[in-house]
Deep mutational scan, measured.
Amino acid sequence: MTYKLILNGKTLKGETTTEAVDAATAEKVFKQYANDNGVDGEWTYDDATKAFTVTE
């Protein structure tokens, strides 16, 4: 299944996707991606759209 990450960081904005077996796996991938790019903020998840959002 495809999951999307929407980044609303102070220095990094954009979107990326990942293929994962479930939302928990996608969340781990996205949190590592955000951490690697220096984005740390409030996380939300919308199951209807399979989209995670992180806002700094």
Rank of each mutant, 00 (worst) to 15 (best):
E56F: 11
T11R: 11
E56G: 05
E56M: 07
N37T: 07
T49S: 12
T25G: 08
V39P: 01
K28G: 07
M1G: 12
T11A: 09
K4H: 12
T25Y: 07
T25C: 08
N37V: 15
E56R: 04
E19R: 14
A34V: 08
Q32D: 08
K10A: 11
A48D: 11
G14E: 09
Q32E: 09
V21S: 11
A34C: 15
E42S: 10
D36H: 07
D22W: 03
L7C: 09
W43C: 00
Q32V: 07
A51N: 05
D40K: 14
A23S: 09
D40T: 14
T17G: 04
K4M: 07
E19S: 10
D22Q: 03
A24G: 08
N35C: 14
L5M: 05
E19H: 13
T49A: 12
K10Y: 11
Q32I: 09
G14V: 14
L5H: 01
K10L: 15
T17N: 06
D40W: 14
K10G: 08
A51V: 15
N8A: 08
L12Q: 08
E27N: 05
W43Q: 00
L5I: 03
K31C: 06
W43F: 04
T11F: 14
V21Q: 12
T2K: 12
T55M: 06
K50H: 12
E19G: 05
T53C: 06
A48S: 11
E15T: 13
T11V: 11
G41L: 03
Y3K: 03
T55C: 06
K4L: 10
T18P: 01
D40S: 13
V21G: 09
L12W: 14
F30M: 02
A23D: 05
N37W: 15
K31H: 08
D40P: 04
T25D: 09
D47K: 08
D46C: 08
D40V: 15
D47C: 07
T49D: 08
N35W: 15
D36N: 08
G41Y: 03
D22G: 04
E27P: 00
V39R: 02
V29K: 09
A20F: 04
N35L: 15
N8T: 08
A26D: 00
K50T: 03
T16C: 15
L7F: 10
E42C: 12
T11D: 11
T16P: 03
K50D: 02
N35K: 15
D40N: 13
G38N: 10
G38M: 06
G14K: 12
I6N: 04
D47F: 08
V39T: 03
A48Y: 11
V29Y: 15
D36G: 05
K31I: 07
V29G: 04
K13Y: 11
K50I: 02
Y3A: 03
T11E: 10
G9E: 03
K28P: 02
F30H: 01
L7W: 11
K50Y: 08
F52Y: 06
T49W: 05
E15G: 07
D22A: 03
A48G: 09
K31R: 15
G14M: 14
T55Q: 06
A34K: 01
T55P: 01
N8I: 13
G41T: 01
E15F: 13
K13M: 09
A51I: 15
T17I: 09
F30I: 00
E15V: 14
D22T: 05
T55F: 07
T11G: 09
W43K: 00
T49P: 02
T49E: 11
M1E: 13
T44V: 10
A51G: 04
K13V: 10
V29S: 05
K4W: 10
V39K: 02
T2I: 14
W43A: 00
G38V: 03
L5F: 05
A34P: 01
F52W: 10
Q32R: 11
E15M: 13
T53F: 07
E42N: 09
D22H: 04
T55V: 08
G41E: 01
Y3H: 04
T2H: 08
N8Y: 11
G9R: 04
N37D: 02
Q32T: 07
L5R: 00
N8K: 11
T11L: 12
N8W: 12
M1A: 13
N8R: 10
K4D: 03
K13A: 08
E19W: 15
L5W: 02
N37L: 15
A26V: 02
V21A: 12
L12S: 07
Y45W: 04
G41I: 02
N35Q: 15
N37Q: 13
D47N: 09
G14L: 15
Y45H: 01
K13S: 10
T53H: 06
K10P: 11
N37K: 14
D22I: 02
G9P: 03
D46Q: 04
T25E: 13
E27R: 08
G9L: 15
T17Y: 15
E15P: 03
A23K: 13
K28T: 08
G9V: 10
Y33I: 07
F30D: 00
D40M: 13
N8G: 04
F30Q: 00
T49L: 13
A48T: 11
I6W: 05
E27C: 14
T53S: 06
K28I: 11
F52H: 01
A26E: 00
D40A: 12
N35H: 15
A34W: 03
F52P: 00
K10M: 13
F30P: 00
D22S: 07
E56Q: 10
G9Y: 06
K4Q: 06
V39W: 14
A48E: 13
K28F: 08
G41D: 00
D36Y: 07
D36L: 12
A48N: 11
T17E: 09
Q32S: 08
V21R: 11
A20S: 06
A26L: 01
T18K: 04
K13C: 14
T18N: 03
Y45L: 01
V39N: 02
K28L: 12
W43L: 03
L5C: 10
Y33K: 02
N35Y: 15
D40G: 08
A26T: 00
A51W: 05
L7Y: 10
D46H: 05
